[in-house]
Amino acid sequence: MKKTIDTSGQACPKPVLMTKDALVENIDELVVVVDNPAAKENVSRFATKQGHTIKNIKDVGTKFEITILKGGNKEETEISAEEFNCAVLPSKGKTIFLSKNKVGEGDDELGQNLMKAFIYSLIEVKNTPSTIVFMNSAVRLCVEGAEALPNLQKLAESGVEMLVCGTCLNFFGIAEKLRVGNVSNMYDIATLLTSENTLTI
C-alpha cells in the first residue's frame, strides 16, 4: 500500500515527525512532499537511518517528492530538533535608531563626517539593517542636498526600510524636501523600537 503526506509549510522538525508517524502505518511505500532542501535532507536521512530505502527524490517545481520504501524495523528512536539541524531562520536585520545627524559628541564636523562614513559603510557590511529610524536632527540626513542622501537611497533600493519622524521634519521646516524613506509617527516608531533588535547611534 502506498501513502502520500504533504509536509509543505511545516517547520523543522515537523516533516521528520510526520514521516515517522506515517511509516508506523501499514504501508509499503511512502511519498513525502517537502518544500525546502533542509527538510529533504532531514527526511531522507531519517528514513535511511531507520533502515528504510530512498527509492527516489523528484524535483517538483519548488518542492521535492521523496519516495521511501518501507523496510526498516528498527527500534523507535527519539527525534530531536538538534539532530535534524533545524536551521534557525535567518533573523531579521537590526533596526538602527538615529537620533541625530552626527555620531557621538565632541566635535560637530567630525561627528557629521563619522555619520556620513557610517552610512556609507552600511552599504558594504554583510548584515545590512532591516530598518533605519530617523528622529530629531537625523531627519536632516534624508532631505535634498544632504551628503548622506545618495547612500541612503542606495540602501533604500536594496530593501532597507526607512522611517522618518514627521514631527521632526515639520519642526525643521524641511518636510517637502524629504527624498528618502517614509514619514512615520511616534506610535509606529515606538512599536518598532520596543519590539525589534535595536541599535541606537
Binding site: E109, L110, N113, K116, A117, F118, Y120, S121, E147, P150, N151
Partner: peptide, 23 residues
C-alpha cells in the same frame, strides 16, 4: 591626519565635485 581629510572634504563639497568622505 583626520583633519586633512576633513579639510579636503570641505573643499570638494564647496567645489561640488563628485566625491565623498568614506571610511
Amino acid at each position: 591626519l583626520t583633519h586633512n581629510a576633513m579639510k579636503a572634504k570641505r573643499k570638494v563639497l564647496f567645489d561640488k565635485l563628485s566625491a565623498e568622505i568614506i571610511p
